[in-house]
Amino acid sequence: MQQIINFLIRNKNFLLFAFLFFISLVFTIQSHSYHKSKFVNSANFLSGGVYESLSNMQDYFNLKTYNQQLLEENARLRENESKLYSITNSSDSLSIYNTTESQFKYIPARVLENPYSKTDNIITLKAGKRDSIFPEMGVITSQGIVGFIEKTSTKYSTVLSILNTNFKTSAKLRASDHYGTLEWNGQDPNIMTVIDMQEQAHVKIGDTIETSGQSAIFPKGIPIGTIENFELDNSKNFYTLSVRLFNDMTNLGHVYIIKNIDKEEIRTLEENNTNEE
């Protein structure tokens, strides 16, 4: 017994080192698997507050860009509105837009911190449970997708960016209904890859890739980017596409968080199905 205690005292520094190193490894492994709830994250009062005061200052320098983005978005929305107006007011078509409420609601939020040089980037937003933001809501800008909510506190939330090697979502060609999986290889913040696209798809350089709407996170038809390059994989059955993003992920000011009103219903349905099997 005496010897054990002596041993512990003699090696207390090494044991302390090993213990703390073990803790940090646990945190690291947690951060590489996004299903686990993270203990250390920036959606808290301290780091959220620091980022908020910094972002308050930085926003002034970007006002011009934000205004430009808003103008472009306004123009596009105005165009859509006039199209819808002509559809709903022509006598030979049914008015579908008035009968059903939209399935998706959009909540605006400000970006506080937006890293893009790491392999697993996580964005901090100024919007939290107080603004009815909850995990697994999609985040987009007017130009394209940004990621989905990972963790929320009262006032802040973190977003698993599309520039994160853990990020995966289903994507499709705008021209046809061929699906693939969108992911990031951790290198260039402007380029993402779509894997497992069927070989039958007519892929052309310059084609638009958009979200497929197969997950409950993103609605169908949110633009992602254009095809810059493509090749068949080793099995000659699937294309691997490199996609140049529409969104400039290095310059995000304001984003929209997508609230899917039917999500609970979809989830309970899926759970019931798996329970019955």
């Binding site: 803790i23 945190f27 690291t28 492994i29 951060s31 994250n41 920036s42 780091s47 996580i122 901090t124």
Partner: peptide, 27 residues
């Protein structure tokens, strides 16, 4: 050792990077 660990953990908290800075500082 404890202070080095906490320094790394603070940076990790701001950077959302799990425990990578904590581990590196500890080493």
């Amino acid at each position: 050792l404890i202070l080095a660990f906490l320094t790394g953990l603070t940076i990790d908290m701001f950077g959302n990077s799990g425990g990578i800075h904590a581990a590196a500082c500890l080493v």
